[in-house]
Design a protein around this nucleic acid. Sequence first.
DNA 1: TGCTTGACAGATCTGCTACAGTTGTAAACT
DNA 2: AGTTTACAACTGTAGCAGATCTGTCAAGCA
Lengths: 203, 203
Amino acid sequence: MTTAAKPYRVAARELLRDTLLDAARELLGDRPWAQISMAEVARAAGVSRQTLYKEFGSRDEFAQAFVIREGARFLDAVERAIELHLDDPCAAVAAGLEVFLSAAAEDPLVALLLDDDGTGGMLPLITTQSRPVLVWASARLGEAMRSGWPHASDEDVELLADTFVRLAISYVTMPRDSPAAAAAAAAELLAPYLERAMGQSGT
Amino acid sequence: MTTAAKPYRVAARELLRDTLLDAARELLGDRPWAQISMAEVARAAGVSRQTLYKEFGSRDEFAQAFVIREGARFLDAVERAIELHLDDPCAAVAAGLEVFLSAAAEDPLVALLLDDDGTGGMLPLITTQSRPVLVWASARLGEAMRSGWPHASDEDVELLADTFVRLAISYVTMPRDSPAAAAAAAAELLAPYLERAMGQSGT
DNA sequence: TGCTTGACAGATCTGCTACAGTTGTAAACT
DNA sequence: AGTTTACAACTGTAGCAGATCTGTCAAGCA
């Protein structure tokens, strides 16, 4: 019991968070974020407003968590794409970026997010105030790369992940010709670096 | 006379544009862009409002031109830095990016621009609606690189310039530790590509 | 001809008021 | 634990009058 007590509380916590964030996503289907109150989110999740505030400190933190959670869906796909090309880092980066850009281009939530200019929207969270998202995504991606290519240096991985995320955000907010073209271009640019850093330099 | 007539008109046009854009910059010293009217800009430049509208089609186009003109100041410095390292493309990129980021970090106008969240500000012009700025800066930078490193392929130059600009914007809107660190990191990442593309591969 | 001036409709912004709603926190309740 | 209820402070809304601004005219002046 005591050993199972903690996992349960963790699971319950995650369930709560997921339920709330899912409710927010549903509400975002027909209203911009600025016009959705915390009370609505709580009600849609079948939870009291205070439980929401207890879990996420404030409205802004909730928005932050939401963006990161949605980003996690994309990042999952990216990591999967990378794991399919562990033998070829260059192809891995190209595939990962293309998966990400394609998914983002099709996602209606991303579209909503991007023309959500005014204050109170979520757009600043991926432009001017995107540090949390950047460090989170970069860390998560770096982790995946590190485990996939163990003999790459930490500095190389960190730099690569950071740049990958920055370019991904850049391509989403100001698209190039097509997701595939953008991914191919970025991959071509990174290829020489990847060969040097990730290649069989472990000798 | 006939030969000098055209250059004069061009010069007069540029003088007019410069005067207007300079007036706008001065006004931006103590007020955000959203609170500056076209009439004020014209008056500050000693020109009628209609002349302003004749030269720049609309308020938005004027803002666009302003951002590009200010960006040109930075880009001049970047090109100068690059020209000092024509023998070493990697050092050139590092120096160029560092010059840009340092100048941007110190410039009060950039600071104003970055916390200018609301609609009507100029911030979208370098985030979600930055295509014009991006293509302009990328083209100008590509031109400089092409003349500095003639035996680099057009594709390489274009890709490099595009990525340079995207990363520069990214570092400005979400800074890394320091301008120097960001420039060094990006340069390190691009180094292998540069060596392959810009190096003495003309053989 | 090139620039300025004056005028214009339509839209937008201001200031103001009052009122409803929301945020964030703290209590008491189950 | 999680839910309710309550609360002060802040923020958004609605209405409305008036000013201001945008974008585009035609007329006037060098």
